[in-house]
């Protein structure tokens, strides 16, 4: 089969929620004539992901990332538009789709709450009809990557968050799906666990040629894993392209962090700077202004510390969200 692994064409999802009126009389009226309100979670989202590609799906809270993933995974039926995963519409043949995809929603576990994780794995083995031999080798491989064996006899309710998500990752990959959706897989993890999961994701893409859609609010993660990013805001795609290009387009800014011996900006320094702790931070986009500032700082004896760097990804994203919000407003 050729063609992209994942394709979204003008995807749209509207949630209908009933609004409760306040008070007792309001509750009664709601019972008789419920008032409906529509939330447009995804307005119009189109993109495609090639086989073996990792796409970082980014956006502020409530942008529609999880909703988009759920439509691709066959959990939600789109209100309009079309999703195609491996060339087929997920919700039309949910069971076929289920064999092709693996999904982890970091905030919720898919394991059986009362069963030791290994028992959940054997249940999944039976549900997906995985051959015992293949099952054993895969479990071994997953254990090697995620170091599960020390806690997989526990039930999810007795696991730490990081342990639980690692088991969820393993559970999602037991049936060897070519396409995986990871919705905030590293949420709430410590640095070591995060690193392990990132390595795991990288391995799945580079060594196993799996197609991955990843959402995260951790920009360090994006910088480490993604070459291509899809930015959504308020249910629309606001950027689809290379991460490097995005940085170039939005983040040509600079930052200089200075500590003055007096604690105040002495006269003769261009710009007031922003006081952050003991230091002052000067920022801008014009490179000549930066050179000028640097020249005036380097000659001084009352500068005790000086640091300079470009915008980090976090700032860039914030800038993009703000700028795009202003455009659509």
């Amino acid at each position: 089969m050729d063609g992209p692994a994942i394709e979204a064409r003008r995807l749209r999802k509207v949630f209908t929620t009933s609004v409760r009126r306040p008070g007792f009389v309001g509750a009664l009226r709601s019972l008789v004539a419920p008032e409906r309100a529509d939330t447009v979670a995804v307005e119009e989202v189109s993109f495609s992901v090639a086989r073996g590609e990792l796409l970082a799906l980014l956006g502020p809270n409530g942008a529609g990332k999880s909703t988009t993933i759920k439509m691709l995974a066959g959990v939600l039926v789109p209100s309009d538009g079309e999703a195609r995963v491996a060339g087929q519409v997920p919700h039309l043949d949910r069971k076929v789709n289920a064999r092709r995809i693996g999904a982890v929603f970091g905030q919720r576990t898919q394991l059986w709450w009362d069963l030791p994780a290994v028992e959940s794995f054997t249940m999944l083995r039976d549900i997906f009809k995985i051959e015992q031999e293949a099952y054993r080798t895969r479990l071994e491989e997953l254990d090697g990557l995620l170091e599960l064996a020390s806690f997989w006899q526990r039930r999810p309710r007795q696991m730490s968050l990081g342990q639980r998500v690692r088991c969820d990752l393993a559970a999602a990959l037991l049936h060897d799906p070519p396409i995986i959706f990871l919705d905030e897989p590293t949420i709430g993890m410590d640095a070591v666990a995060k690193e392990q999961v990132r390595e795991f994701i990288r391995y799945q893409v580079e060594q196993r040629s799996r197609t991955v859609i990843l959402t995260t609010h951790d920009m360090a993660e994006v910088a480490r894993l993604a070459r291509r990013v899809l930015l959504v805001n308020e249910g629309r795609v606001v950027y689809d392209g290379g991460l490097a290009e995005l940085q170039k387009e939005y983040g040509s800014g600079w930052k200089v962090r200075v500590t003055f011996a007096t604690g105040e900006v002495p006269p003769g320094i261009p710009g007031p700077g922003e006081k952050v702790g003991d230091a002052h931070v000067f920022a801008g986009v014009d490179p000549t202004a930066k050179r000028e500032l640097m020249r005036s700082l380097l000659d001084r004896d009352d500068v005790t510390d000086l640091e300079t760097h470009g915008d980090d990804l976090e700032d860039i994203m914030a800038a993009v969200y703000r700028k795009r919000a202003a455009v659509t407003a």
Binding site: A73, V75, R94, K95, G102, Q110, L124
Partner: peptide, 11 residues
Amino acid sequence: GKIDAFLLRPL
């Protein structure tokens, strides 16, 4: 989110 999980399995 268990129903979500059920929808991800071929059963």
